[in-house]
Design a protein around this nucleic acid. Structure first.
Length: 240
DNA sequence: CCAGACGTTGTT
DNA sequence: GTCTGG
DNA sequence: CCAGACGTTGTT
DNA sequence: GTCTGG
């Protein structure tokens, strides 16, 4: 991942014992995920202040907690930001200006409504097996219950921007995460770019492939490579 | 002025 | 923190 | 998104 | 039915 996103500063070992997150096949809101972001490194007293932003890999919690929140529980509902309204929403507009990130993923799940209240989960991923770069925002929240020297004093959280799903993917669900194409990563991440609206164009879903998976994925207690195995059988919903 | 919200999804 | 609604 | 709780007192 | 937690 450090190579794929040309990360200059690996911030993960400072945040996670062992240096990396375990593979996760069922990422739920409030869980930790990787984020690629571009920030000016903290001035640690030595060397030059270095006001150049640097591309970093960090661990953030999914579910954005606005800086003004009284407690972090609101984050569990701030898991998506609609691209149509993200620039106006009080919870997101500040982050949109200068705290944009990329959330890497092998793919994502989407639930297709069936007859009645039933739903069929699908796994959606790049046909070429490459990594997805979902458009995200991040925010810092200062925990008032912890002392200043507590490493958990600052909570960093993120949200995923969504857009209209079209074509094949629209048959599963009308919304989908927004992707950032590789040639726009640098601009998208640059905190000095304060008007990223030109970059907010839906990525073509052409290179994405979708197949039905077991509804074992519905419960966050289940987690393993079996969750992304294609569902077998004649009655499996297809997208033709 | 103060109080209260601040979000998305999908379902009826 | 900032906006909306009453 | 889906699953699971939805409550307090006091005890192990 | 609706909210919270993962």
């Amino acid at each position: 991942m450090l190579e794929e996103f040309q990360v200059e500063l690996d911030g993960v070992p400072d945040q996670v014992p062992g240096g990396e997150l375990r593979p996760d096949y069922n990422v739920a809101p409030t869980k930790n995920v990787y984020a690629v972001m571009c920030r000016v490194p903290k001035d640690d007293g030595g060397e030059s202040p270095g006001d150049e932003p640097v591309r970093q890999l960090r661990v953030v919690r999914w579910g954005l907690v606005p800086s003004w929140a009284k407690d972090p529980s609101v984050g569990s509902r701030m898991i998506n930001a609609r691209v149509e309204t993200v620039a106006e929403k009080p919870s997101y507009r500040r982050a949109l200006k200068s705290r944009r990130c990329l959330i890497p993923a092998d793919g994502y799940y989407e639930w297709m409504p069936l007859e009645g209240r039933k739903k069929q989960p699908f796994f959606i991923h790049p046909a070429d097996g490459g990594v997805l770069a979902m458009a995200g925002l991040y925010e810092f929240w200062k925990d008032p219950t912890r002392p200043d020297d507590d490493p958990l004093k600052w909570l960093c959280t993120c949200t995923v921007i969504t857009t209209t799903a079209t074509d094949k993917l629209g048959r599963i669900h009308d919304r989908m995460p927004m992707m950032v194409e590789r040639d726009r990563w640098t601009e998208w991440l640059d905190p000095r770019v304060t008007d990223p609206t030109g970059l907010l164009v839906p990525a073509g879903p052409d290179r994405l492939e979708a197949y039905a998976v077991s509804d074992v994925v519905n419960s966050v207690r289940h987690n393993g490579p079996e969750l992304v195995e294609p569902l077998e059988g004649d009655d499996v919903p297809r997208l033709f």
